[in-house]
Design a protein around this nucleic acid. Structure first.
Lengths: 226, 226
DNA sequence: CGCTAATTTGATCAGACTCAAGTGAAGTGG
DNA sequence: CCACTTCACTTGAGTCTGATCAAATTAGCG
């Protein structure tokens, strides 16, 4: 893992922090300075139970936040992509483990700095509330998916959701493995694989390679997502 | 449905709003005045898609917030008991339907009043953030339950969770039907019923009546909750 | 007391899981 | 450059948990 110091406005969309010209620095309160951290594939960013000293934003790559049951069953709460904020906690401990999915760059903002700043800067505080709200809405959507949708509906919903979060909304390059998808959707890798194959057979999607999915028939996918 | 005006501090725990002595009124900013509303069993408090003009707090009884899939499958996001806040939205529309479970009293706080007040009263704003955080944590716990736990584990988790939220932590008086429980836990009523019967057979719980559950062996229940 | 709705219980079914084997792609080293 | 290893993914066969369908029982209520 490689670390560098960066000054970036917390609310700006993800840009390579190192590329911000020095003239910008003066515009940004010093307290929002963040540490840029590069992670290789599958590195731990923080672990469940660790002190929640930082809040993070994804610059590039993807991060998964997950929890384990005592016997090892894993549930991936969410995948965080470019621009997403993760690691916000009400208490002082992280309730999830966060790991890089592929090679990933994040910015870590010291929590106490942010909290101090939020007291005076209500716009910043607002940003946090918005970030939290987004997490809440995502979690609630996921509850509906896990509680009431079948395998095809889960996969279809997942693909559409992912497609909405990336630039090219017709071709999805999956940053994560089938295991990750399974642990996110409450399925097994076999079911994920079978369901994707089935959707390909039905010409709803294309699978040019294992990590690339072409949304051939988005209407059909939306119908299948229930 | 019956409505009355009440002044209650938003942050106070649930008390019959009408019983607040007049001397208290001066202590509370006028903007936090809430409308007391009484609902019969299964009345709609707000519906999915409705303009989110109010935020609510349960005074007595219970409220369920739910969403429907196009074909009628229902997922109950959460049950809200005495003192719980519900109906907070990021956008201007409700994303859930809220209904009273039994006879229920809630206080409705006008959202714009609260937002205006929150700008000056950071303690109040804090309360909201805390309320949202709690919703987020609940939703995330529920994701783990729905994604990775089996029927027994779901029921056990549900009973323990309920027990923690009521005064008598050994005897749970269910405000909700088996259907509601099923739609909350991603199961069918038959599975809920069978699982409760099984737990009774194993002497983990007692079922003196359909809506009353005695937690006989909480340790066993915790072990079963995974 | 009789009606209706809620719950329980039973029998069967199906979707997703488990176990097992096969395929394929990426990378390594000769 | 190619054989070899490894790991991720796919596919197949059989099993099992929880769903569905159906009936019996109980509870609540006019």
């Amino acid at each position: 893992m490689h670390t560098a110091l960066a000054i970036e406005n917390f609310t700006s969309t993800a840009i390579a922090a190192r590329s911000i010209p020095p003239t910008c620095v003066a515009d940004v309160p010093a307290a929002t300075a963040g540490l840029v951290r590069s992670h290789e594939k599958d590195e731990e960013i923080f672990a469940e139970g660790h002190r929640a000293a930082f809040v993070y934003k994804v610059v590039s790559g993807a991060v998964r936040t997950s929890r384990l049951l005592c016997d090892g069953r894993r549930q991936i709460d969410a995948f965080h992509l470019s621009g997403d904020i993760f690691g916000i906690e009400a208490g002082d401990e992280h309730r999830f483990t966060a790991e890089s999915v592929g090679n990933t760059v994040v910015i870590a903002y010291r929590r106490c700095s942010i909290e101090a700043l939020a007291a005076s800067d209500s716009a910043l505080a607002q940003q946090f509330v918005v970030g939290m709200m987004r997490s809440l809405e995502r979690a609630q959507d996921h509850v509906l998916l896990l509680g009431r949708k079948n395998a095809i509906e889960r996969i279809a919903s997942f693909l559409l959701d992912l497609a909405e979060r990336i630039p090219d909304k017709a071709v999805v390059d999956l940053p994560m493995s089938r295991i990750d998808i399974a642990d996110h959707l409450g399925l097994t890798i076999e079911t994920v694989s079978r369901t994707l194959s089935q959707l390909e057979r039905e010409a709803v999607i294309g699978l040019p390679s294992t990590r690339r999915i072409v949304l051939r028939n988005k209407t059909a996918l939306q119908r299948l997502a229930a």
